[in-house]
Computed example of a mutant assay.
Amino acid sequence: DTATVLLMGKTPLCHPSIMGRKAVMRRLGYRSKYRHMEDMDLFARALAMGVKFYALPEILLQYRIHSASISAQHEAAQMSQRARIVKEMMNSITETTAYDEQIDQFVRSVSYGQRIDDEARDFFKQHMLAINAVLSKLGITASEEWQKKQQWLAGVGIDE
């Protein structure tokens, strides 16, 4: 499910708890253009290269959430960066012609439950087909969560 969660604009792994190959991490590195979202950017570029991610079912980390955290202080910037990362990842794997605003609205609605209008609905359907193509190209079976999102887009939750 880590790939589908990432393609929906969420960070699929808790960064302080990841383990990975040192060579991959060094080759990809962090990019400053995605300040405060460097982990998601790294995961997206790794996925585009064909790196597989696995999440263990055990809880390995206690993570304290508070109002002074980086995520709380930079929430708006992080949300727009999520859209740019998803767009960049999609473009690196398949041919997409989405605009930042469309991807941003997609991430906000599909991943965070914000409502969409009829105009966005057609784009979302096309974008979800593109994500399916990416998953297929990477040899990843669509997760149950992704299938539920596709059903949601088919009519449930739109403009309600």
Score class of each variant (00 low, 15 high):
Glu144Phe: 09
Leu28Cys: 05
Cys14Glu: 08
Leu28Met: 06
Arg108Gln: 14
Asn91Gln: 15
Leu135Gln: 06
Thr11Asn: 13
Ala83Glu: 03
Gly20Phe: 10
Leu135Val: 07
Gly139Trp: 00
Ala44His: 07
Val86Ser: 02
Ala68Asp: 15
Ser80Pro: 03
Tyr30Pro: 11
Met37Gly: 10
Leu138Pro: 02
Thr97Cys: 13
Ala120Ser: 08
Leu47Cys: 03
Lys149Ala: 06
Val110His: 04
Gln151His: 09
Leu153Tyr: 09
Gln126Cys: 15
Ile18Val: 14
Ala154Gln: 10
Ile158His: 00
Leu6Phe: 15
Leu42Gln: 03
Asp1Lys: 06
Asp41Phe: 01
Ala68Thr: 14
Gly157Tyr: 03
Gln81Leu: 06
Val86Arg: 02
Leu42His: 02
Glu160Val: 00
Met25Gly: 05
Asp41Glu: 15
Arg84Val: 07
Ala130Ile: 04
Ala130Pro: 07
Ala76Arg: 12
Leu47Met: 10
Thr94Phe: 11
Ile59Tyr: 05
Met49Cys: 13
Glu95Asn: 13
Met37Lys: 11
Asp122Thr: 05
Ile140Ser: 06
Thr11Ile: 12
Ser143Asn: 10
Val107Gly: 00
Thr2Asp: 12
Lys22Tyr: 11
Glu145Ser: 09
Leu56Asp: 10
Trp152Met: 11
Val134Gly: 01
Glu160Pro: 04
Ala68Ile: 14
Asp104Leu: 15
Arg27Ser: 13
Val110Met: 15
Asp41Val: 05
Lys10Phe: 01
Ile93Cys: 09
Ala55Leu: 12
Ile93Gly: 00
His36Ala: 10
Lys22Phe: 06
Arg26His: 02
Leu135Lys: 04
Ile18Asn: 08
Met89Asp: 05
Ala23Ser: 15
Trp152Cys: 00
Arg121Thr: 09
Tyr34Lys: 04
Gln73Pro: 00
Pro16Leu: 01
Thr2Ser: 15
Ala133Phe: 02
Gly157Ile: 03
Asp117Met: 03
Met128Arg: 09
Ala130Cys: 04
Leu47Ala: 08
Pro57Trp: 03
Ala133Leu: 11
Thr96Ala: 12
Glu58Ile: 04
Ala48Pro: 05
Glu88His: 05
Ala77Pro: 00
Met8Asn: 11
Lys148Val: 11
Ile70Asp: 11
Leu61Cys: 09
Ala142Lys: 09
Gln126His: 12
Ile18Pro: 02
Ile65Ser: 08
Gln81Arg: 09
Met49His: 11
Leu28Phe: 13
Ala133Trp: 01
Leu47Asn: 06
Pro57His: 07
Leu42Ile: 00
Ser92Ala: 14
Arg31Thr: 11
His127Met: 13
Val51Cys: 11
Ile131His: 01
Val110Lys: 07
Ser32Val: 03
Thr4Asp: 07
Arg121Asp: 14
Glu95Ile: 14
Arg121Phe: 05
Arg45Lys: 08
Leu60His: 10
Gly155Phe: 07
Ala133Ile: 00
Leu6Ile: 08
Arg21Asn: 04
Leu7Asp: 02
Val51Ile: 15
